[in-house]
Design a protein around this nucleic acid. Structure first.
Lengths: 270, 270
DNA sequence: TCGAATTTGTGCGTATGTATC
DNA sequence: GGATACATACGCACAAATTCG
């Protein structure tokens, strides 16, 4: 309120300047992908700083995903990462199979899933997403997806208990789950409820310690969480889920470009 | 490849345990949004650690977006952020106006843009996205989007110079740009090239120092970059762009659910 | 209104742990 | 086993912003 100046982290901090300098070298290619990155001792010497400061600078680049560090080993400039794309088409998955299993099969890997459900009272954030009141009963299900028995994805879904009445646990099979496809769409359709659209919101954050432990990754790396909510035709939310997508996986949306002529715009709400 | 054990950050580090403990308090609501977060001195005392360790723990939660720190002021648990949604429908923007300006108008803000183009030789990553050879000439354009004269979005686009031959600079107006809508779609259509689909890949990373400076945000916070590429009907890339989306903005994809019956699947290429 | 106390952030130097080579 | 290198932790000093008497 008081002043115009917000957080103004002037870029004159030593570790910031060091990080900027080294980042530029990486981007310009003077430090090639896969090549050896200066050691802390070298940074200490060339920039005339303490070890802690050098370490702080490398931590910045580590969090940006530009370098790879391993205790004991030399730090290296990260190779252009092998990305594995999770295609999220504009229409939901064709009935033939879930993209998860298809992707896994295409890579010659074996996909499996573990799930665990329990009832709880909706926290504010979840209540808002499901358009219910805080504290209303919901069924929370946590999923762990494995590729070749290695935990690869984490997901959590919430369903209002008032609506589905615990139908989930019954028909829940390994095909299901938030990543695996559209189990809930089919399930609700069998109950006479028509799911017509989904909304996926992309929220960035860093990986927490517990998550990193489960996935065998480092805490603090940047990831995306896809918050997906399914709606009926009268815009009633029937399920919402958090899907944690970590490198090397990467969501990919394929979007048709509508020709300007076609003006029969079938609005789908909002 | 030598061993099965990858990076195994055993969660017994002090700062990790402190962060886990405090995170749980926030998630469980024992530390309510907006409430005062323990000071470094208090953390130091309750967990019996040095100041630096306490600071490192808060840094973790800061990067996760759970708390807000300001030098001099008390740290607070972050309010559930007021998100501003950037709707990315499954069809691209109707001609009536770009979503950027629509969003800004809806919030009573004034949107404007600055752009700057120059020719360069394609780096490997860009070359791959444009399906050209490394070093081929491209036109790079950097955009800064303002909301109420405050820099809000950054974007960079690349076009193969061989294709559009610098047509961009001529018809480039304030309506255009990667965020603003589909200037290039119309532009190429006028040249007889039909853009039929786009691909958007979601890449998480943290905000770099220079970017943070421009946007008046803190370096190190998690953001998403939308890498968007436009294709012609024969899958020829005609433009690719990096759109840097920072909090409180959040991409939102609205996706229709196809009924299982409709099996006339019009594949749009893989 | 001004100055002092508080609080976060940066930086130094050192010691130690632990994984890699 | 020893040398190297990254990671954690401590303790201290100071800077900068905020808060409050």
């Amino acid at each position: 309120m008081s002043s115009t100046s917000e957080v103004r982290p002037i870029a004159t901090r030593k570790y910031t300047k060091i990080a900027d300098d080294l980042r530029r070298q990486i981007i310009d290619g003077r430090l090639a992908p896969g090549s050896r990155f200066p050691t802390l001792a070298e940074i200490q010497e060339t920039f005339e700083v303490a070890e802690g400061t050098a370490h702080q600078a490398t931590r910045v680049l580590l969090n940006e995903g530009l370098i790879e560090t391993k205790p004991g080993a030399q730090t290296r400039v990260r190779e252009r990462p092998e990305v594995i794309r999770l295609v999220r088409s504009w229409y939901l998955e064709p009935p033939s199979g879930s993209p998860w299993h298809a992707d896994m099969a295409a890579q010659g890997r074996v996909g499996s899933m573990e799930a665990h459900s329990e009832a709880e009272n909706a926290l504010p954030a979840i209540a808002e997403r499901l358009a219910i009141a805080t504290g209303d009963p919901v069924e929370r299900t946590t999923y762990t997806y494995m590729a070749d028995d290695k935990p690869t994805f984490l997901a959590t879904s919430w369903e209002p208990l008032g609506l589905t009445g615990g139908a989930k646990s019954k028909s829940q099979g390994p095909e299901g789950g938030p990543v695996g496809g559209y189990g809930i769409v089919r399930r609700l359709r069998d109950m006479g409820v028509s799911v017509t659209h989904a909304v996926e919101e992309i929220v960035p954050r860093t990986l927490t310690g517990p998550e990193a432990q489960k996935l065998g990754l480092r805490a603090g790396i940047a990831i995306v969480v896809i918050e997906r909510t399914y709606f009926t035709e009268d815009d009633l939310p029937v399920e919402t889920a958090d899907m944690i997508i970590t490198p090397p996986y990467r969501p990919r949306f394929e979007i048709p470009v509508r020709a300007e002529e076609e003006d029969e715009l079938d609005d789908m709400g909002a």
